[in-house]
Structures are given as structure tokens and as C-alpha cells.
Design a protein around this nucleic acid. Sequence first.
DNA 1: CGTCTATTTGAATGTACTCAAAAGCGGTGG
DNA 2: CCACCGCTTTTGAGTACATTCAAATAGACG
Lengths: 197, 197
Amino acid sequence: MKYYEQIVEQIKKIIELDTNETEWFLSLFEKKTYKKKEWILRSGEVCKYETFVLKGCLKIFYTDQQGTDNTVKFAIENWWALDLQSFETQTPAFYSIQTLEDTITFRISRENHLLLYEKIPKFEKYKRMMYQNAYILLQHRMTQQLFEVAEEKYQHFTDKYPGLELRISQKEIASYLGITPEFLSMLRKKRMEQSIS
Amino acid sequence: MKYYEQIVEQIKKIIELDTNETEWFLSLFEKKTYKKKEWILRSGEVCKYETFVLKGCLKIFYTDQQGTDNTVKFAIENWWALDLQSFETQTPAFYSIQTLEDTITFRISRENHLLLYEKIPKFEKYKRMMYQNAYILLQHRMTQQLFEVAEEKYQHFTDKYPGLELRISQKEIASYLGITPEFLSMLRKKRMEQSIS
DNA sequence: CGTCTATTTGAATGTACTCAAAAGCGGTGG
DNA sequence: CCACCGCTTTTGAGTACATTCAAATAGACG
């Protein structure tokens, strides 16, 4: 499988694309690779690209007044990452985006993105479906995170991103769960003790 | 202003509609009124309608194993309410919807909703924009709720739904904030004491 | 007016955080 | 190749935030 087929595959789950459209679609993207811990977007900059992860892992996060990173989402293989508000309005971003592993991405600029809507109107449908689904997922994350204790949150994290807890540090996971790394360490210890007995 | 003009006004903020389209659009809706505490959707049922609030207030919530209601969103004047996943896939709903006041709504069925996309394709755009904005709002709610202490959450609630704290009970607010009514009561007491001194 | 529910208050408890220190681990340079 | 440095993880003590439970009070509504 060519490296770019992944992205086409994702699109075709929702709308049909013929060969010409596929080719033109791909021509709007550029491949970009990053090393671990590289910045893709810094809070305050304008988000110029929407990024599709071919391989690797990103975090979308914000840094609070105390200097703590709070992760709102991880983007692994086949996920999109951007600061939506900044991208759509071309205003300074609230969120930052950084790699957690060496990462290979496909990215599309705001201009090309607008071309897409213009030339292939069915992309409106694709995007509607995408945001609809993203909204559903986010609502579930919110209900989980807001109304559950840390132990249940961790369980849901491992369910949602299977295997990711082995790829990234506990510090990053704690940042996603909204707890301290120390507390997560304690939870995992408690878990292990329980699974032995 | 006729009671249905509100909804047209909302749509026209995003896409243009001529007189014919507007008329046809409105014909797809039905007006429905509810008394306080009526169910609009019960978890487990299929969500058959998307509801637009003309006047009043709804809560979208789920009831956990302990029997506690957890509110994910309030829908006041000019907001939409539905279980999106259930509505789109016609599967049993996870969330429930109930009125918190006597409420007047406009609602559209799944079938008519599909007609809308079919006959007026620019509604794809309307819906895309709607979910895009909803996603942005939800992401902000999540970052606020997840990484802030209860006092800051309450502040953000009063900012987001100005005046709503006077219309609904503290119990409902606590359910939205993810804290107990007792603790909210304590917070408000503390607040008042501070504002006097 | 009486009943039912919401709010307040307080004590005891649980959940999660802060701070500090020690141990583990990975990468880099000599 | 290993010694060192920096960062992550673990551990523990003390503390702050939020909950539970119970009881008293206040409000809403028929």
C-alpha cells in the first residue's frame, strides 16, 4: 500500500471519489515528517494546516497559567489534528500541537481546503459527517471525564486508544486524564496489585 | 415576530434562503409544547426528532449506575437538542432529554431531515458549520470542566448561560458542573460572603 | 394547609494534589 | 562502553478539594 492510500481510504468510507477526483484531492496535500517532540502548532500562531497522521502520534493541548500541559486529544494513525477555530477563522490558536513520536503526516492548507469545498461540493458532506462523528466522540469523552473518577477515566482511555499507553509516557496520559503523574502512578500500582490477587 | 421566525433567523445567519425555500423548510417542522419536567427522549428509545427550542429550557443528560443525573448540555432559546448518535443511526439513545420549564419547540423528524439534505444541498453546509461550531464550543467546555476546580466551572457556567442560574434549580446546575448540590450550596455561600466583604 | 422536593448546614470520609526525595531509565559525549 | 545528566516514575507525608450521610430548614405546588 502506498503511503498516501490511507487517507483516501478514510475518505471513501464516507463519500465516493473517482480516479480523477482522488488524484486531484491528493495533489492538494503535502507530506511532512517530524521528529519526536517537534511543534506542529504553537498557541498564539495561526493554524495554517489541517494535519492527517499517517504514522506516529500527536497531542493537541493547552498550557495553563501554572505552566501545566493539558491534553484535549491524541491524534494517532488516521486521525486529523488542527486547532479548528484558528483554522476556520485564521485567528491565533488557543491550542498547541506537538509530536510524541517520530511522525509522518499529510497536510492541507486553508486555501486548498477551501478549493476542495468549491470544486468538489460533496466534501461538504464529508466534513459534516466528520464533525458530526467528532462531536459524538467528544461528547462521550466529556461525559466520561466530567462525571467519572480517575480510575474509570483511565479505563476508558485504554479502551479508546488501545496500546497507546505503551507508546507514550505516563506523564502524557496523566495530562489527558486531567490528573497528576504521581496520582496516575499510584492508580497503576493499585491496579497491578489487584490483578495479582 | 411570528413564533417560527426565530428558527429561520438562525439558519439565515449561515446560509441564504429564498421565500419558497423558507416556506418549504418550515413545512417540515411541527410545533410542540411541553410542560415542566416532561420527557422529550428517554435513554434507550430511538431519537426520532431534532428539537429547536423557541422558548423554555431543556437538559440533555444521562443517568449513571448510582441513579444520578449528569447533564451534558442545556438547550435554551434558539438551541437545538437531540441525541445525535441515536438520531443519525436510528439506534437506542444513550442520553435522555427533559424539560426544566414549560417549553415551546419546533421539531423535525429524521425523514424530513433527510429530505432537507436531498432537496436543498446547501443544508449540508449549514449542518457542517453547525457541528463545527458545536465542536469548538464543546472542546472549550471540556477543557474548562476537565482542568478547572468547581469554582471556576461555576463562573464559566454563569458566563455561558447568563441568567440561567436564576431560572433553574441549583440541583440542575450541580448536575451540569459535575459536583454535588451540597457542595454547590457551599460554594455559593462562600461567594456571597466574599462579595459582601 | 400539608406534602414533597430543594437547599442549607455540619461532621466524617474519600479522592486527588502538592511538595520533596529517591529510584529508574535513556540518551549523549568522552 | 560506561559514566553522567536530565527527565520520568515511584513513594510518602501532609493538605486541599469534594463527597456522603444525616438532619434541619425553606420553598413550591396542589
